[in-house]
């Protein structure tokens, strides 16, 4: 059996996502109109980020249990790809929001003011900054074992902070962002059945792409590590 089958699956799912995502039927909503198709792209970035951060924290826990540096490298690379997807999710969300939330009757800066006050955006920015600090922390410790141990503990803290900052606080405050009352896109009652057929494969496809990129980065850093140890 070919070990690379999931990479082919990733390509197939992404092509399916793009074609069906742009051509497939969507419910006609007054405010979102065609931008509802962003569900297959913007929302998938956040799902992918969450899955990659979960893998990262599992690797950190494994490192703390075994003190095997391979797990530390994995934790680092999964976190960095997770940040990449998170940043893409943030930027695409900003583009989407500026066309669906902005009030055409207000001057641009007033709409901007109400958008930057969004609790969901602030929470997401906080979560990403906490993960940036993970990399600052890593690069500030020179001793390899100490670096691995301290950053593994910090990674667990960072993962724990994800939940209040992107899941809990935004739901306690008034927000324009959808999904305050539950899990948007996961709830079987509020997502259109036709969209679900594209959305779930899209999440899997984008996450596999993230895992693919991460696996390359892990292999590269393992090679570097080996070279460094031999020299």
């Amino acid at each position: 059996m070919n070990r690379q089958w999931w990479k082919i699956l990733c390509v197939i799912l992404l092509v399916y996502t793009v074609v069906l995502g742009l051509l497939g039927p969507v419910p006609a909503l007054r405010q979102l109109q065609e931008t509802i198709r962003n569900l297959y792209f913007h929302v998938c970035m956040w799902f992918g980020m969450m899955i990659l951060f979960t893998i990262s924290v599992i690797q950190s826990i494994k490192y703390l249990r075994s003190l095997d540096l391979n797990h530390d490298i994995r934790a680092k690379e999964y976190a960095s790809t997770g940040i990449l997807l998170g940043l893409l999710g943030y930027v695409t969300g900003a583009i989407w929001a500026s066309y669906t939330w902005a009030d055409p009757n207000n001057p641009a800066y007033a709409s901007f003011g109400s958008i930057v006050r969004e609790p969901k955006l602030i929470g997401a920015a906080m979560a990403l900054l906490i993960y940036f600090a993970y990399f600052v922390l890593r690069s500030s410790i020179t001793d390899i074992d100490k670096k691995a141990r301290v950053s593994a503990v910090y990674n667990i803290f960072a993962y724990a902070m994800l939940f209040p900052s992107i899941w809990i606080i935004p739901r306690l405050l008034p927000s324009l962002h959808p999904g305050r009352e539950g899990n948007p896109a996961l709830n079987f009652n509020d997502i259109d059945a036709r969209m679900r057929m594209v959305f779930y494969p899209a999440v899997i496809g984008w996450t596999l792409l993230g895992v693919w990129i991460t696996s390359l980065k892990i292999r590269l850093s393992l090679l570097k590590e080996k070279k460094w140890l031999n020299a």
Binding site: N2, R3, Q4, K7, I8, V11, I12
Partner: peptide
């Protein structure tokens, strides 16, 4: 290993 994805 990656021949099939290339062909695709």
């Amino acid at each position: 290993r990656n021949k099939s994805s290339y062909i695709l």
